[in-house]
Design a protein around this nucleic acid. Structure first.
Lengths: 105, 105
DNA sequence: GAAATAGTGAAGTTTAAACTTGACTATATG
DNA sequence: CATATAGTCAAGTTTAAACTTCACTATTTC
């Protein structure tokens, strides 16, 4: 049910505007207009970026009246974190797994 | 002299072929031809992907005779890791910093 | 030293991403 | 209820990324 894959997350964060949006939203939630303010592009374009971020599990939005409030979503970030853990050098991974199995015993 | 920015790393990993290349190279180093084998594209295209991965600090290559040997480079990955750490929820970050300052005392 | 192997370089094509325009809907405010 | 605000939708344009072709160089191997 997760639906979130590393592909989408990386693609989403590959764009400077979207990365900046995520950075700002991890500081504080805000409306689409507030989010759009710093960028020299139309609201439509910002809405399109937002859709990509939502699909990647990096942002959630909720409509309150005529305002859409955007918040950072940690799910996309944790997909990233897991991908990173899997790409650590094989030796480190082996030690990790050893550690895990000791923890379980 | 780091030169490696999150922008390049994310953009590099936004492409499925390049992500797969990094995944394979973290398992074992190999030549450009070996790297290219699974993909339905020309050697030239693979070389272009490789150049992007090198610029992002995700791969290093070294020419040995007529063969170019490619290895995973951890620098790009650690840029990613640091970006991720900075995007954890503000509360967690505060606790982290608190932990760090206690560690130092 | 001829032929095969491994890769490189410049230049063009194709495909996909980013962005715009203009018309539209829904909610709020005087 | 008229006007402004906040955002959305469909469709098209522009720009940039991915990939190709073909010609070429450097290193092996026979």
């Amino acid at each position: 049910m997760s639906e979130i894959d590393a592909a989408r997350v990386f693609q989403a964060l590959g764009d400077a505007t979207r990365r900046d949006m995520v950075e700002r939203l991890t500081e504080t939630p805000m409306s689409v207009s507030a989010l759009a303010a710093p960028y020299d592009m139309t609201l439509t374009a910002v809405g399109q970026h937002l859709a990509i971020l939502e699909a990647a599990g990096l942002v959630t939005t909720e409509k309150q009246g005529r305002v859409r409030v955007c918040k950072a979503d940690t799910r996309g970030l944790s997909v990233l974190q897991n991908w990173l853990l899997d790409r650590r050098p094989p030796l480190e991974r082996m030690l990790d797994r050893l550690g895990d199995s000791l923890d379980e015993s």
